[in-house]
Amino acid sequence: MRLIADLFLVVGAAFTLFGAIGLIRMPDVYNRIQAGTKAVTLGSLCLLIGIALLYPAWWSKLLVIGVLILITNPLGSSTIARALLKAGVKPWSKASVSQPGEADR
């Protein structure tokens, strides 16, 4: 049991780290939001599952925390992204990809 829990913890921590690496490596703020949100959400959920396997008595509160993260994290990211777009921050573009509605330069 402890081994399975530990595997969840390592995988969760690894995804969280990938998210942080994405935060550093990605070229613009929108891509950083993407890397940050996705990887950290699944990473956190894996960590929570790992802890739940270590401390089964805590399952109910861990479930609430997991659902909270699952709902608020993408919502917060979308809110930031929308605010940026409205504030006029242009998405980075490698080549001339068609951008309906938004000129890329």
């Binding site: 595997l7 390592v10 969760g12 921590a13 969280t16 780290l17 998210g19 942080a20 990473g43 960590l47």
Partner: peptide, 18 residues
């Protein structure tokens, strides 16, 4: 356990990068 220490290390690195 060793795996748990590894997990803590990875998480610490993630915090530092952020």
């Amino acid at each position: 356990t060793l795996l748990e220490i590894v997990a803590l290390g990875l998480l610490g690195a993630a915090v530092l990068l952020s």
